[in-house]
């Protein structure tokens, strides 16, 4: 692309990925709306996808790109076990380290946002919040 910023793989800031879970009502609407609002209103770069399940079923190349690119990754979606399974099944296994998954099914929007926008990585070794 011309005139757009290059891919900054050396950027220490985590990449942010938000899943809308648009094909089912398993994530509370208010939580996913609040998290999206917080990310969008922050003005910080992020990636938003309609539904990680749907992408995994299609083996969307974007999953491979997200999983393989260097640097930390933070994901706002659902259960970490499910998210890792989806990436893995799509042929894009997430690395054990450097990936934080925040669960919008169970956590409050404020907690998810705090995790996504934190200055330092989560304290658990894998970074996954159950």
């Amino acid at each position: 692309m011309t005139d757009l910023p290059p891919n900054t793989t050396h950027d220490p800031q985590p990449r942010l990925l938000y899943c809308r879970c648009a094909y089912a009502q398993v994530v509370p609407e208010d939580v996913k709306d609040e998290v999206l609002a917080g990310l969008a209103e922050s003005g910080r770069a992020f990636e938003a996808v309609p539904d990680l399940c749907e992408m995994a079923a299609r083996r969307d190349p974007q999953l491979q790109q997200l999983a393989s690119e260097a640097g930390p990754l933070r994901i706002a979606a659902c259960w970490p076990r499910a998210v890792r399974g989806l990436f893995s099944q799509a042929g894009a296994a997430l690395p054990k380290e450097g990936v934080e998954i925040h669960n919008m099914r169970t956590d409050a929007a404020a907690d998810v946002l705090a995790g996504m926008q934190a200055a330092s990585p989560a304290s658990s070794p894998s970074g996954d919040t159950p």
Binding site: T8, L16, A22, L36, R44, A45, Q62, Q65, E69
Partner: peptide
């Protein structure tokens, strides 16, 4: 998103992966 499009906000802070 609710219409099925993936959306990237690019240009501020760390840039997202070129989609």
């Amino acid at each position: 998103l609710d219409r099925g499009y993936a959306v990237t906000l690019a240009g501020q802070g760390s840039s997202a992966t070129p989609p």
